[in-house]
């Protein structure tokens, strides 16, 4: 199979998944048992502005039109980026509320994912290279133990210990109150300082997986003929490690990279809540607490589509980089 056909198949899969997400988002409020939508609508009636009530009607699917007509209308609205009006942040439209948080989540989750991948794969490769050495003895069990803690608990412990007790790091928000958001050096420095602790807890919680994947792949590669041949030819060990072993062992880690995006984003959502970090996770909490269904569904849609898009990019990169993936 040619790489293009393979790429097409993968992209087709993501397109299908995106359609399933869109349709689920449409069907969930309309198919839930016991008509909670009606009950909710009744609860909010009289408590919020008429405009919000109308928006709620549309989001909850309280319409007498046939399902197919509603579906077409729903897709049309989505195509225009209309996700309804938020109840918690009334009268802000959901799309505007989500837009403010998306960048922070991408920054936090993306940064943590890349750092964790690079650091973990390096530790795993070195551990396998010096099998039975101190790194191989200490790192895998220690990191598996740390990885057993929930992401957000790690965040709570770090926020309490390093933040409140020792006061080394800021523990709330994405940047300090003293700086203005903008392309200034102070703002960037403040944002980095605020992201350090949440990012670090996510790296610590997810490092173990990368270490183990890379270590196990390296062990298999190191036992294979090309490595023995390279050793027999008398190539320097450093060259064998970098050019022969790592390059061949990286495929399983790269393949898990796509799947890890979903996990890390989920972890980031909960970590944000602990640090009151103004990303998608914090909005998710507001939506759940305030039973803001339009916001909740908008968040589900944007997070899912973002993860699917990132996955598609990673898959395309893998197919382009590694000939073995083109099978």
């Amino acid at each position: 199979m040619g790489p293009l056909i393979q790429l097409g198949r993968r992209l087709g899969l993501y397109a299908l998944a995106a359609w399933v997400a869109l349709t689920l988002n449409f069907l969930l409020p309309r198919l839930m048992p016991g008509d909670p939508a009606q009950a909710l609508y009744a609860r909010f009636q009289g408590r919020i502005e008429p405009a919000a009530l109308d928006s709620l009607r549309v989001t909850l699917g309280l319409s007498d039109a046939p399902l197919a007509t509603q579906y077409v209308l729903y897709l049309q609205q989505l195509a225009h980026g209309e996700l309804g009006t938020s109840l918690v942040y009334f009268p802000e439209p959901v799309s505007a509320v989500i837009g403010t948080g998306l960048g922070w989540t991408v920054f936090l989750a993306g940064g943590a994912l890349v750092v964790s991948f690079l650091l973990g794969s390096t530790i795993g490769a070195l551990a396998a290279w010096r099998r039975g050495g101190w790194l191989d003895t200490v790192a895998p069990p220690l990191l598996s133990f740390l990885g057993a803690f929930p992401y957000f608990w790690m965040a709570m412990a770090a926020a309490w210990g390093l933040g409140f007790e020792l006061g080394w790091f800021p523990v709330r928000h994405a940047y300090g109150p003293e700086v203005q958001a903008g392309a200034t050096l102070e703002f960037v420095a403040s944002a980095l300082r605020h992201a350090l602790l949440p990012g670090a807890t996510m790296v610590v919680a997810s490092l173990g997986g990368w270490v183990l994947t890379m270590r196990n792949a390296m062990l298999v590669v190191l036992g294979d003929d090309p490595i023995r041949y390279a050793q027999a030819r008398g190539l320097p060990p450093g060259r064998i490690f970098l050019h022969y072993a790592i390059r061949n062992a990286l495929l399983p880690s790269l393949t898990s990279f796509g799947m890890a995006i979903g996990f890390v984003v989920s972890g980031a959502l909960l970590t944000e809540i602990v640090f009151a970090y103004p990303g998608q996770g914090y909005l998710l909490l507001q939506a759940v607490r305030g039973q803001d269904y339009p916001l909740l569904q908008g968040l589900f849609l944007t997070i899912t589509l973002a993860v699917l898009g990132a996955n598609a990019v990673v898959d395309a990169l893998i197919i382009a980089l590694d000939p073995r993936a083109r099978t």
């Binding site: 899969l13 299908l16 689920l24 409020p29 799947m259 909960l270 997070i303 899912t304 993860v307 699917l308």
Partner: peptide, 24 residues
Amino acid sequence: TWIINVSLVMPGLPLMVVIAAWLP
């Protein structure tokens, strides 16, 4: 296989949250 693969690429937490929010 299509169903399995589509379910695999869907990020879990947002899906769980949105379903759980609608159920008692």
